[in-house]
């Protein structure tokens, strides 16, 4: 069983095909959220080419995320970052057997439609790309393909879920090789969940209405989340993870899995690091295994990394409304 908290009945993304036997239904909330559940305890790797996608698959990644440029290059090059070339996405879809995801700009409904038509398995409405709409996120209930969205707090996560996100990732600060923001964001989500639990356990449910107003989410979604005691969808960590120990650390904070962006393919030992990150994520609860994983990489090959306090561009602040 998975939570269907926040589900809207008969949204446009649901497609029913009549057959002479029973109806076949696509795009339901169970199917979209269920897809994310199959990724749990795994690593999704950012890739920009077929070659990188192969390295990711061979290393044991549960999916690849196709971008035009890795987040650290987006940071360096500047300009407008958009969705990747359809040709590269299709080429990757034709060569790996694992799921293929791609990013679209926040609010860019048509980039999302293009990706859905391309048949990607999941769409990431991502702050790594330049936002297209600063007021609205995509109304994701209109799509048959599932979406993943970033968050820095429980409130942000629940707002995205109300818009139809089937999976959440804490944002971190992409392209920095610095895990501090990813840790901050999962800690904040956990803190707010603990608060929510204590409110519901105290029996003073009426306090929740004030919190719902604060959070800018519906009472219903907040109450159901409080009863669950966790996010109603799968939650991965993202943004700045660059070593196996980083990945294991975030798993220990309660994340369901890991997105690695620049961390792998901006290092000089991508192949070893990709496998080591998967190993540390799977066996995060076993220090021997994490040590073994960390020993597969060389710190001298890690990406240099950035102090997040000195950044000109804070991607995490995009699309927080």
């Amino acid at each position: 069983m998975i939570s269907l908290c926040g589900d809207i009945n008969n949204h446009k993304g649901v497609i029913t095909r009549k057959t002479n036997l029973d109806d076949v239904v696509c795009g339901t909330t169970t199917l979209k959220r269920g897809f994310a559940h199959m990724l749990k305890n795994g690593v999704v790797m950012d890739v920009t080419s077929v070659e990188q996608a192969h390295i990711a698959e061979d290393a044991g990644a549960v999916a690849v995320m196709v971008l035009d440029k890795l987040p650290s290059d987006v940071r360096k090059v500047g300009g407008v970052a958009r969705t990747a070339s359809i040709k590269i996405i299709s080429d990757i879809m034709n060569t790996v057997t694992i799921p293929v995801m791609a990013k679209c700009r926040i609010g860019h409904v048509y980039e999302a439609h293009v990706l859905e038509k391309t048949n990607v398995d999941m769409i990431d409405e991502s702050e790594v790309l330049t936002p297209a709409d600063e007021t609205h996120h995509i109304w994701k209930w209109n799509f048959t393909a599932p979406f993943v969205n970033g968050c820095r707090s429980l409130a942000e996560a629940l707002r995205r879920i109300e818009e139809g996100a089937s999976m959440i990732r804490t944002k971190g600060e992409p392209g920095t090789g610095n895990v501090v923001e990813a840790v901050r964001h999962i800690n904040k989500v956990n803190y707010e969940l603990a608060m929510l639990k204590s409110i519901i356990n105290s029996g003073n449910e009426h306090i929740l209405i004030n919190l719902a107003r604060d959070f800018q989410v519906s009472y219903n979604v907040l109450e159901k989340t409080a009863q669950l005691g966790r996010l109603p969808v799968v939650n991965f960590a993202a943004g700045g993870i660059s070593t196996p120990a980083d990945a294991a650390y975030l798993m220990s904070l309660g994340c369901d899995g890991i997105f690695v962006g620049s961390g792998i393919f901006k290092s000089s030992d991508a192949k070893e690091r990709a496998y080591a990150t998967v190993l540390a994520t799977t066996f995060w609860n076993n220090f021997d295994k994490v040590q073994e994983a960390q020993n597969l990489i060389d710190e001298k090959e890690s990406m240099l990394g950035l102090d997040t306090k000195e950044l000109e561009l804070q991607m995490q602040k995009r699309g927080s409304n």
């Binding site: 239904v25 696509c26 269920g34 879809m93 799921p99 859905e116």
Partner: peptide, 9 residues
């Protein structure tokens, strides 16, 4: 692919 994932009795 995922878009074709389905439920049926």
């Amino acid at each position: 692919r995922q878009k074709d994932s389905f439920e049926s009795y």
